[in-house]
């Protein structure tokens, strides 16, 4: 592909095999700057695996992943991540957790000298997730929703080129979840971030994303006609959603919203409805498929 550097993230012909189980197969994906990609798919289809590959925590079996044209060999500060759990360090206070990203890259002595400035900056990020008054508490003293907000602030202070999120709101109750969704949209707008967001909640995916990727193992292979679980997952649909600014949760009530969710459910989540690869719904303008 000649347009590589144009994209922030570029994945070509990616394949990932664990022992003899093919998890991901023929993944082609280009992500532009500023996009809010949501990734959905059935449980076990390899969503977390894809994030690990992008992060550099795992090696691809074949194919390549480029961040701004360069391959990543280890997790580094150019990519941020927020997990469903375990993003925070139990031995540090909330503020210290956020400061960590400014302290770890420099020597102990330097971070000691700059402590005041770092503290101020961290406080700013803590305010942006509305938790300033909890600065001196420990993570276990906060509710799940608050912990996730801290985790987001902790990642944001690094100003990562791309922020990966693996079911970050998966353990939250519906009310808190919606508040968090609005918050992440606001932060995305303010900071002009690129986000790659994994969820198994279709409503959340459609509400948040400017682009929705459906990854699934339920499709019919174009050449050998095989179906179902023995196949590596692929991107089976790729939707572009128009969004002018952060939308309000009211759009979840509209008919269009419901129809899109139903469509995604049919295309990616129903083992009985397998499309062949040529039928994949890849309407996003960045979408491309190569067959290797």
């Amino acid at each position: 592909m000649q347009n590589e550097p144009k994209h922030l993230l570029f994945i070509e012909d990616l394949k990932k095999v664990y022992k003899n189980k093919v998890v991901l197969d023929d993944i082609d994906l280009a992500v532009s700057k500023g996009e809010f990609c949501t990734l959905v798919g059935p449980s076990g289809c390899g969503k977390s695996t894809l994030l690990k590959l992008i992060l550099g925590q795992e090696r691809t079996t074949s194919g390549r992943i480029l961040m701004e044209g360069r391959e990543l060999l280890l997790p580094s500060d150019s990519i941020g991540i927020v997990y469903q759990k375990y993003s925070l360090y139990p031995h540090l206070t909330i503020l210290e957790n956020i400061m960590l990203g400014k302290q770890l890259p420099v020597s102990l002595w330097r971070s000691f000298l700059k402590k005041k400035a770092i503290r101020l900056e961290a406080m700013h990020y803590l305010e942006s997730v509305q938790l300033a008054e909890h600065a001196d508490k420990y993570p276990h003293q906060l509710s799940g929703g608050m912990q996730q907000r801290v985790a987001i602030a902790q990642a944001l202070i690094m100003k990562p080129k791309i922020l990966l999120m693996d079911e970050p709101f998966g353990a939250l109750d519906p009310g808190t979840r919606e508040i968090m969704q609005v918050l992440i949209l606001e932060l995305w707008e303010q900071n002009r971030m690129t986000i790659f967001f994994v969820t198994h909640d279709l409503e959340e995916a459609v509400f948040l994303g400017t682009r929705i990727l459906v990854v699934s193992q339920y499709y019919t292979h174009e050449t050998n006609g095989k179906q179902g679980v023995n196949l590596g997952s692929r991107i089976v649909s790729d939707y572009a959603l128009n969004r002018n600014g952060a939308s309000s949760p009211q759009i979840k009530e509209t008919a269009e919203f419901g129809q899109l969710i139903q469509r995604i459910r049919n295309e990616g989540f129903d083992p009985k409805q397998c499309q062949t690869a040529s039928e994949f719904n890849l309407e996003h303008f960045d979408s491309f498929q190569t067959f290797g």
Binding site: D77, Y83, K85, Y86, L100, G101, L104, P105, A155, M158
Partner: peptide
């Protein structure tokens, strides 16, 4: 948890750190 360690790397920590 492994997440805890990967997270540190994304926060700019070296392996020694």
């Amino acid at each position: 948890p492994e997440e805890n360690i990967v997270k540190a790397l994304t926060l700019g920590a070296s392996q020694t750190a």
